[in-house]
Write a protein that binds this DNA or RNA. Structure first.
Length: 441
RNA sequence: GGUGAGGUGGCUGAGUGGCUGAAAGCGCAUGACUCGAAAUCAUGUUUAGAGCUUGCUCUAACGUGGGUUCAAAUCCCACCCUCACCGCCA
């Protein structure tokens, strides 16, 4: 949530309307202003009436204790109570309407973010590595994986549905090696603490990091069939779309001490995304799946330190690709291409030879106080003041897509795949994944 | 899954209908003392909103939501969660 103070006054509203328009969000300032006016008048009246009621109640209490007759005051207060119920009801409606809007407003883009309506306005920051020149025709990871017998999309379609996969043998092991390597890098060399998190979360957590209420349809939900509240409304748990959700929500509702910061945590988890809107894109291969593994890094930092933290977080993710020898570039997302909670995002795009292009493999964001405000995550500063923390998250990196990059960039003419050196310790020293000899002929 | 107990501020913990936004202790902050520190003493120490004479006044919040009442931390209902014991289980 952005600071609700910005939603109160016309000057602020017009200012953030411009900045939100850069993110393709149309802020209805007229509606907010009229709601705000109503809120104020209802609230003043409510408080006035409550104050009257409290005064009467005090009188009544006093009278009763002295054994006097209180019926006159009780008759007065009945009238106050009636109006109070009425005004309170209207006030609650207005408040609900305002907060409904407030929860769907994205974070304000930082001034340094390139302005533009879509990804064509993203600005490349730097490149690392040189895409390899192949002296044979490159195969994509699907062809490589099927020849090796390591990627089985057909069985996944049978067992579950489209956009799932079975990995087998050396490919499954390579996939596992990648995740282990990334986790070890973050924990042993970059100062992150490894966390093993729940893969199902409640809706408060999803509100906290910003997936709800707007992105309901991008998530998989499970129903808790045995429970329901008075109106029969069922609770549910949802599968995490990223470990950012459980990791960041660790500090939800917490008051941290300044000495606890920064908190740097990481987790390797499966991620589940329904992405109902993106059917038809990247239908072939591992690029866009309903389930994929990802190593996620999260930092909870002092509000004045988040911008330097974004740079170091991004560098932490880059190091994964550097150690793997995978060419990539870093792109600053434009205002129109950023995620809901982010004030600034760098994407890491890895070279994918078969597509002859760079594809997103990591996204590193500074969410400033946007998630912290939703979560109620604060820190007590020296001097005793409580302020919202800043939260950051970044993939370090998407394991499935990284597997694609390794397979395609390290492929050989015969369809075998050379295992990058840093992964060999995780594969019992194995150097190559071979195409099995055709049997039965 | 069964039975019982319970959820109060940064923490521990009192409070069973009104004078309790909340005792007491701890912690923390500021000041005094000190060369400095410890100890000691004094003062202060939740958040959000409204108003104005900017320091004060008012309102709300005691797991969450609803209800009873002139008045709810306190009574009632539902839900969530925690602890203990039993059962079941990888």
């Amino acid at each position: 949530m952005i600071d609700p103070k910005y939603l109160r006054d016309e000057k602020d509203l017009n200012e953030i309307k411009v900045r939100l328009a850069q993110r393709n969000y149309d802020l209805d300032t007229g509606l907010l202003l009229s709601l705000e006016e109503k809120r104020k008048s209802f609230q003043s009246r409510t408080q006035e009436l409550q104050s009257q009621r409290n005064a009467f109640s005090k009188q009544i209490g006093q009278a009763k204790r002295n054994g006097e007759d209180a019926s006159a005051a009780m008759a007065e207060v009945a009238k106050v109570g009636e109006e109070l119920d009425e005004v309170k009801k209207q006030q609650d409606e207005v408040l609900a309407e305002i907060s409904k809007i407030a929860y769907t407003i994205p974070n304000l883009p930082d001034a340094s973010v390139p302005v533009g309506k879509d990804d064509s306005f993203n600005v490349e920051q730097r490149r690392w590595g040189e895409p390899r020149k192949f002296d044979f025709e490159v195969k994509d990871h699907v062809a490589l994986g099927e020849a090796i017998g390591g990627l089985d999309f057909d069985s996944a379609r049978k067992v579950t549905g489209s956009r799932f996969v079975f990995m087998k043998g050396d490919i499954a092991r390579l996939h596992r090696a990648l995740g282990q390597f990334m986790l070890d890098l973050h924990t042993q060399q970059q100062g992150y603490t490894e966390i093993c998190v729940p893969y199902l979360v409640n809706s408060d957590s999803l509100y906290g990091t910003g997936q709800l209420p707007k992105f309901e349809l991008d998530l998989f939900h499970t129903l808790l069939t045995a429970t329901g509240d008075e109106e029969g409304v069922q609770r549910r748990y949802s599968l995490i779309p990223t470990a950012e959700v459980p990791l960041t929500n660790l500090v939800r509702g917490e008051l941290l001490q300044e000495k606890d910061l920064p908190i740097k945590i990481t987790a390797l988890t499966p991620c589940f995304r329904s992405e109902a809107g993106s059917a038809g894109r990247d239908t072939r291969g591992l690029i866009r799946m309903h389930q994929f593994d990802k190593v996620e890094m999260v930092q909870i930092v002092h509000p004045e330190k988040s911008w330097e933290a974004l740079e170091s977080l991004t560098a932490n993710a880059e190091e994964v690709l550097q150690k793997l020898g995978l060419p990539y570039r870093v792109v600053a997302l434009s205002t129109g291409d950023m995620g809901f909670s982010s004030a600034k995002t760098y994407d890491l795009e890895v070279w994918v030879p078969a597509q002859n292009t760079y594809r997103e493999i990591s996204s590193c964001s500074n969410c400033t106080d946007f998630q912290a405000r939703r979560m109620g995550a604060r820190v007590k500063l020296a001097g005793g003041k409580n302020v919202l923390v800043h939260t950051l998250n970044g993939s370090g990196v998407a394991v499935g897509r990284c597997l694609v990059a390794v397979m395609e960039n390290y492929q050989n003419a015969d369809g075998s795949i050379t295992i990058p050196e840093v992964l060999r310790p995780y594969m019992g020293g194995q150097e190559k994944i071979e195409v099995p000899a055709k049997s039965g002929k």
